[in-house]
Design a protein around this nucleic acid. Structure first.
Length: 255
DNA sequence: ATGCCTAGAAAGTCTAGA
């Protein structure tokens, strides 16, 4: 059974409500995973449910916040990442269409000094543990969201990041690679093994116009789901619109 | 020169994003 999902860091759901509604109407995914809601759960816009989507919202005041918008009712499994001792609203996991789907907003790691970076690595470690558990349960599962890591040097435009940035530090990349070693497939690179396929463009210095982007929004698929992979598209059209998020949707289709 | 955007919290101008 075919299944289309997307990940989109919207940088405030209230600022982007109309963008998301229009996008849902255009793409009609089975599931949209949102990050950086920047709003409390009870302030999440009602318009998505009115448009026929089942919302699962894990919000908080100010920063962070994740949500799922599903075309069918879902079972909520977790509203925090097991093993990640931090109250920030950065993970939500559901069961739908015979899959377990984790939607994550991984800490950036550039703020908060040594402790801030350690929190990022802690999230990666807990995510690997979660992957191991799901693998042991023989679940078909995927993780998608804003991983805040450029897996290789091909995943950021020259000059877009300074050398010591948390998005490309070896420890961050090791966290990413540990997930791959657990048998997960990087959906975009499975279908587009090389080339620039960015998902983020800074608001400053006309980064989008210069294609000075980063590939930091990802989808990781467990083996049987990877066999069903037919399409991965970073939706650049969204970044050209008025008042866009700095991230674009990453669309993935399974056969 | 982490700064030339953007958003949120909050009422100044920070912090965080990445």
């Amino acid at each position: 059974m075919s299944f289309t999902f997307a990940s989109w860091n919207v940088n405030s759901i209230r600022q982007r409500e109309k963008h998301v509604l229009d996008w849902l109407d255009r793409v009609k995914p089975d599931l949209l995973c949102l990050q950086e809601l920047k709003c409390e759960t009870h302030l999440f816009p009602a318009s998505f449910a009115e448009a026929g989507y089942h919302p699962v919202v894990v919000g908080q005041k100010g920063y962070n916040g994740v949500a799922m918008l599903a075309r069918t009712p879902v079972e909520v499994v977790h509203e925090r990442l097991p093993g990640f001792a931090n109250e920030a609203a950065r993970y939500v996991e559901v069961r739908m269409a015979s899959m377990t789907i984790g939607n994550l907003y991984l800490p950036n790691g550039n703020s908060g000094g040594t402790e801030g970076f350690a929190t990022k690595l802690d999230f990666f470690a807990a995510l690997a543990e979660r992957a191991q558990t799901l693998r042991d349960e023989e679940a078909d599962f995927l993780f998608t969201g804003d991983f805040n890591v450029c897996p290789t040097d091909e995943d950021f435009a020259p000059g877009a990041l300074s050398p010591g940035d948390a998005l490309l530090r070896p420890e961050s990349r090791a966290g990413w690679h540990r997930l791959l070693w657990l048998g997960l497939t990087d959906a975009l690179r499975a279908l587009k093994p090389s080339g620039r396929h960015y998902t983020f463009f800074d608001y400053q210095n006309a980064a989008f116009q210069r294609n000075a982007g980063l590939r930091i929004d990802h989808a990781l698929l467990s083996p049987k789901l990877a066999e069903r992979l037919v399409l991965v598209t970073p939706d650049r059209d969204e970044r050209a619109k008025d008042q866009p998020s700095d991230h674009i949707p990453l669309i993935v289709a399974l056969a």
